[in-house]
């Protein structure tokens, strides 16, 4: 299965590149999907511990705003990526120190509340953040090169793809490591973990900071792709979408977040094109169907199909 997972990941990466070459607009959508997929890997880590964050979009938002604020001073994509990620990671550490004491509903609601505070701040301090109008990100350099828009978009797409593969591999190793195993133990029997001398809070905190970091990477990529950031990036429905993508893709594999993110973006686009004023209903229906009939998500469906083939 793991070998298949790797092959499928490879095939998907190649397919994405081909699709991006054939359709320029898809390249944009796929970059966004890759970025969101990276953020959703973070959600997935927390889900392993049985914790649902309904406020994780805030790290995307914080990183995107860091990029927007810094871009005029440091117009270099790679520096902006690191800066945005750093801001999100540090915020993740601060918030994580607080929320890692809580579990389940309180964990979810505290994340939601904190994200709403930050969302309100982004919206409220109009003189600094330009409120709901948002801030435009001018085209930065990429690794020192001043690229044309189209080439820059390719560069960001390639960067997103590389980072996505990197984070997927990292997550796979992480989940298989003792730290990852301890994470699953938080979900099942946390107290036992502590009897064994493993500090559950630190395990959760480290996963939380990692997830914030991945949110930061996603935020920086999104900011440099859409090149316009608004507070909506951090709104609670955006956080809900991340959890949506995690379940849609399936939590069983690190490919799940990417499967989910691409499907989510495409469904939203085609639902919007087909019935512009009822796309939410279609997305909601898809989500409902997945939960009720395929709780393992897309990855679970693929797995099921393979098993049926393997055992005729």
């Amino acid at each position: 299965m793991r070998r298949f997972e790797t092959l499928l990941g490879l095939a998907a990466a190649v397919l994405m590149v081909v699709a991006a070459i054939l359709a320029p607009w898809l390249k944009f959508v796929l970059t966004i999907a890759l970025a969101k997929g990276i953020a959703v890997i973070g959600i997935m880590l927390l889900l392993r511990a049985g914790q649902v964050s309904f406020g994780h979009a805030v790290f995307i938002g914080l990183s995107a705003y860091a990029v927007a604020f810094l871009a005029p001073a440091v117009p270099e994509a790679l520096v902006l990526l690191i800066a945005g990620t750093a801001v999100a990671t540090v915020s993740g550490l601060l918030i994580g120190l607080f929320v890692s004491r809580y579990r389940e509903i309180f964990f979810g609601m505290l994340n939601l509340a904190l994200s709403m505070v930050i969302y309100s701040v982004l919206e409220k301090f109009y003189s600094i953040t330009k409120g709901t109008d948002g801030i435009r990100v001018e085209l930065p350099r990429f690794a020192g090169m001043a690229l044309e828009r189209a080439d820059f978009e390719w560069a960001i797409f390639a960067l997103a793809l590389v980072l996505a593969i990197g984070f997927a591999l990292f997550a796979r190793l992480y989940l298989a490591s003792p730290m990852g195993q301890a994470l699953s133990a938080i979900k099942t029997r946390e107290t036992r973990l502590e009897f064994m001398g493993v500090p559950a809070r630190q395990v959760l905190l480290s996963a939380y900071v990692l997830s914030a970091l991945m949110g930061g990477v996603a935020g920086a990529l999104i900011a440099m792709t859409t090149r316009h950031v608004t507070p909506l990036l951090a709104y609670w429905t955006a956080s809900g979408e991340l959890v949506f993508i995690a379940i849609l893709g399936g939590a069983g594999s690190v490919l799940g977040p990417f499967l989910g993110a691409v499907t989510f973006e495409l469904v939203r686009i085609y639902a919007g094109a087909a019935v512009a004023d009822a796309w939410q209903m279609i997305l909601g229906g898809v989500l409902l169907a997945v939960i009720l009939f395929a709780p393992g998500g897309l990855w679970g469906m693929i797995q099921g199909a393979l098993r049926r083939r393997a055992a005729p």
């Binding site: 490879l10 081909v18 990197g166």
Partner: peptide, 10 residues
């Protein structure tokens, strides 16, 4: 390798 392939294709 996949990563390289992706970059090369890009």
């Amino acid at each position: 390798r996949g990563l390289l392939a992706g970059a090369a294709a890009a």
